[in-house]
Amino acid sequence: MRPTRTGPRGPAVAAGRRTVRGRPVLRRATRHRLAADAALLLTAAAFAIPLAWLVLASLDPHATLRVGLPASPTLGNFSAVLTDEITFTPMLNSLLICGGATLLTVVCAALAAYPLSRFRSRLCRPYLLTVLFATCLPITAVMVPVYALFVRVDLIDTRYGTALFLAAAQLPFAIWLMKNFTDGVPKALEEAAWTDGASWWQTLRRIILPLMGPGCGVVAIYTFIMMWGNFFVPFMLLLSPENLPASVSIFTFFGNYGAIAFGELAAFSILYSTPVILLYILVSRRLGGGFALGGAVKG
């Protein structure tokens, strides 16, 4: 039944040289497409179940662990979690820590990327290789010594200390990404500035940085997304409740599963996830599919 319905659409989809070989090929192409559609829809459904729970439970005043349509959907869960203690303080902490760290990362990466991209030196290649190597290292593994070190130098349980470490952890990848963006900025423009007598600092500030703007934006958004979702680093380095970002507070507030309100947990999860999803959409629009971000994702 379904093939006959989609049959007429076949030629349009499988246009081109395939039509030369006549109808049987077309039918096979249609059959393949339907099989692929079915398989993908099945996978998508499986992937969507936990997401469906998230949305439905957030609207359900009597949410359980199971996916189910709420009998009387309300926004009560959202208003219940929109308090200073549960949402606003942790979100503000997240914003301060991740925002500060992102700013530091992007500035450092942009400054470092310029000479690495433009000047020749014997040390360039080893430096970049080291950076790329550091990109891949499992940061999780250094958290125990980082904790011990932070206790020694009295940076433990400080938001700026956590931000400094987050910035350093994201910096290798940010430098790498930024260097590639800088390589794409045409050199002719700055050579023109050079001949007009601009110093390299002026060139950097007036010509290069504005041209690197889009690159900086992408690096900033990517860095921010990675930091916003990071659980382990603030979990280790911050202790007092008033310092905790949303990624950890969600765990301390709701972590003791027993008698928790699942609807509120879902509502808070949505509030906490929304910024990164919006940012991801923004950046993937710009990059067309978001593949360029796939460079290095690590915990």
Binding site: F47, P50, L51, F231, S247, F262, S269, Y280
Partner: peptide, 23 residues
């Protein structure tokens, strides 16, 4: 559709993904 669903699972913060798969 499939791309959107699979990528959403990827973009969600780690701890939220943990909660969801726990349920």
């Amino acid at each position: 559709l499939t791309g959107a669903v699979v990528i959403t699972a990827w973009v969600l913060p780690e701890i939220v993904a943990g909660f969801l798969l726990y349920t």
